[in-house]
Write a protein that binds this DNA or RNA. Structure first.
Length: 634
RNA sequence: GCCGGUGUAGCUCAGUUGGCUAGAGCAGCUGAUUUGUAAUCAGCAGGCCACGGGUUCGAAUCCUGUCACCGGCUCCA
């Protein structure tokens, strides 16, 4: 029979040949690297018999599909091992994920990280037995019998479309409802490791029971596995919580409260630099600054709808002379009140009001995470009031502004989502549709690729979110752009049009960095603590070789300070080597050694954190070069 | 909030099956050294063993409650 290959060519094979035999016909190397196949575009096992005219592709271990097959099979072996060690275990699901795999179990007893080694050993034993993965399509009754005693599996089985066959995979003693494809046999599983055990709700719903999830990863070779584990270790060193302590940027104090960071001088300085840049950029981009108080009467939150739709994230009211006040979880109502303080003309629109507005939100204790998830944070917030005909341009303007900001901070990779109407929300369908359409159109216009995040909008409108990844690859939502027809209505916000009648403006809520806390947390991990010159809290440290060089060091520091550079002098009585070591640990961009030679020549010996020893340079040249680099935000 | 884990000096960690006055390195302080590209030497000081209850002749160690943190889940900027 004739089989088509991905390059368009054909090969001739005896009838009933399998995908593996096709691979072998193409080449023995390919057959060796093959893990699975695609038949007419559908993933399939290598053992799948082919039919006349099928087009096939071979999935090898170095492709992302191949890794997925490998890891999914590893999940099956994990489940087999757990079943053998913990009889009576009920199986949840066990998919391959971005960097590995997991399997969810309902175990007869609690297990912890200490049990992982034992389970891993059992997995190795099962893999060594090299049993083939056998695929079988069954009828419903037979599948029910095979999965008897597995309530979660039966639940999944009963939800399959009735016309679809149930596919059952068997490997050694283990049987699972599974689409596949799988490895030819378990011996192909060479390099794997179980990483952690965690809780996970059945089907991701907190109303369901909590299962035990075991995470692991697998690679085609031990070398790749080791590399991956090294990468994880490396990522730990970029952790902003660790660097925050090492670089003396911030801490979170138990007695102050969970999720309430305290900024140390160096952290506050980084933040100040970002804030200054942010304010200047906003003033240059047609925004005005506003400021509002941190608490407001509960009436305001009733009008805005937060009291009804956002209360679970808000702190309890406090009593002030019999009146209830609430710490603000958002800035929008305050800005609306400024708008409404007088009549607005259509000529004023669009109005763009920005504020680094601190908000407080109740976050459940388990979700707090360093600076990335806190209970009090400062949003780089702004609200744009505009006419409907200005809406699209305004959104495009915001998108371009965001891209500029992110680029300035060295973020060139981010994910874009369009979040649609959630269950708990206010406003008419029509408004939601118009708002969503406006966001879509602006995204297309800006040429950004995005995914839809259904039901993830805010209660008053849909939004565009942009997420940045941390050192461990976890995505954090930073940028948000929200279109809102509803709050203007609830507050009866108006402007007087050309026709001398009142009209309703549309609001855009937007935060470009998201919050300074989260953004700086991501920034620390992004730069691994080694901030670029313009952001570094200390930009240069002078290292006198001996005490007699202190005067010259002070002169040099003064010269650099004239360029508005942030300079320190190391007055310690340590050796030069130790001073350098300390400055390197602090990740100071410029270390400037000054001794007799430098003093005589009016130079400094430059060592940068990025490049190491660069030799002596005239102080004047260095001052100019550093000033230029700060100016250009290199 | 839920599941699992962890909590000893500012930081990183030791601390046997419950048993001497809880140790070390780094950081800090003091003194000596005046040093040339990642650690000069010596001394000193530093602990309610997260917090509260309990078991015991005796608890950092065992039990229990609380809090915080870590990895996830759910939720979110």
């Amino acid at each position: 029979m004739q089989i088509k290959l991905p390059d368009g060519s054909q090969i001739e094979l005896p009838g009933g040949s399998t995908a593996l035999e096709a691979a072998a016909k193409i080449g023995s190397r390919l057959a060796k690297a093959a893990l699975a196949a695609t038949v007419n575009g559908q993933p399939a096992d290598l053992s799948r018999p082919l039919q006349e005219g099928d087009s096939i592709g071979i999935i090898t271990e170095d492709s992302s599909e191949g890794l997925k097959v490998l890891r999914h099979s590893a999940a099956h072996v994990l489940a087999d091992a757990v079943l053998r060690l913990f009889p009576g275990t009920k199986l949840g699901i066990g998919p391959a994920i971005a960097d590995g795999f997991y399997y969810d179990f309902q175990l007869p007893e609690a297990i912890g990280d200490a049990d992982l080694a034992r389970i891993e050993d059992k997995m190795r034993e099962i893999a060594a037995a090299a049993s083939p993965f056998v695929r079988r399509e069954t009828g419903r009754e037979e599948a029910e019998e095979l999965l008897a005693g597995q309530p979660f599996k039966l639940e999944l089985l009963r939800e399959l479309p009735p016309d679809e066959p149930a596919i059952i995979y068997t490997n050694d003693e283990f049987t699972d409802l599974c689409r596949g494809p799988h490895l030819p046999d378990a011996a192909r599983l060479k390099a794997f490791k179980l990483l952690s055990v965690a809780g996970a709700y059945w089907r991701g719903d907190e109303k369901n029971e909590m299962l035990t999830r075991i995470y692991g990863t697998a690679f085609p070779s031990h070398k790749q596995l080791e590399e991956h584990l090294m990468k994880l270790k490396e990522a730990e060193r970029r952790d902003h919580r660790l660097l925050g302590r090492q670089l003396d940027l911030f801490h979170i104090d138990e007695e102050v409260g969970a999720g309430l960071p305290l900024w140390h001088p160096k952290g506050a300085l980084v933040r100040k630099v970002i804030e200054d840049f942010w304010r200047d950029a906003h003033l240059a981009n047609g925004y005005d600054m506003v400021m509002i108080p941190h608490i407001a009467s509960v009436d305001l939150w009733k009008t805005s709808g937060h009291w009804d739709f956002y209360r679970e994230n808000m702190y309890s009211p406090m009593d002030i002379e019999g009146q209830e006040y609430i710490v603000k979880p958002m800035n929008c109502p305050g800005h609306i009140k400024i708008y409404k303080n007088r009549t607005r003309s259509y000529r004023e629109l669009p109005i763009r009001w920005a504020e680094l507005g601190t908000v407080y939100r109740y976050e459940r204790s388990g979700v707090l995470h360093g600076l990335l998830r806190v209970r009090g944070f400062t949003q780089d917030d702004a609200h744009i009031f505009c006419r409907e005909d200005q809406l699209e341009d305004e959104i495009v303007g915001v998108i371009n502004f965001v891209l500029f900001m992110l680029r300035t901070f060295g973020f060139n990779e981010y994910e874009v989502y369009l979040s649609t109407r959630p269950e708990k929300s206010v406003g008419s369908d029509e408004h939601w549709e118009r708002a969503t359409a406006a966001l879509e159109k602006a995204l297309d216009k800006a040429g950004l690729k995005y995914e839809i995040d259904p039901g993830e909008g805010v209660f008053y409108g849909p939004k565009i979110d942009m997420k940045i990844r941390d050192a461990l690859g976890r995505a954090w939502q930073c940028t948000t752009i929200q279109v809102d027809f509803n709050l203007p209505e609830r507050f009866d916000v108006t402007y007087v049009g050309e026709d001398n009648r009142e009209h309703r403006p549309i609001m855009i809520h937007r935060a470009l960095l998201g919050s300074l806390e989260r953004f700086i947390g991501c920034l620390i991990e992004h730069y691994a603590g080694a901030f670029p010159l313009w952001l570094a809290p200390v930009q240069a440290v002078l290292l006198p070789v001996a005490d007699r060089h202190l005067d010259y060091a002070e002169q040099a520091a003064t010269r650099l300070t004239r360029e508005k550079l942030r300079v320190e002098i190391d007055y310690s009585k340590e050796s030069v080597g130790k001073k350098i070591r300390n400055a390197e640990f602090d990740k100071v961009p410029y270390m400037l050694v000054v001794g007799d030679k430098e003093e005589d020549a009016g130079t400094v010996s430059v060592r940068t954190h990025a490049e190491g020893d660069l030799g002596a340079q005239p102080l004047e040249d260095l001052a100019a070069e550093m000033a230029r680099r700060v100016e250009e935000k290199e």
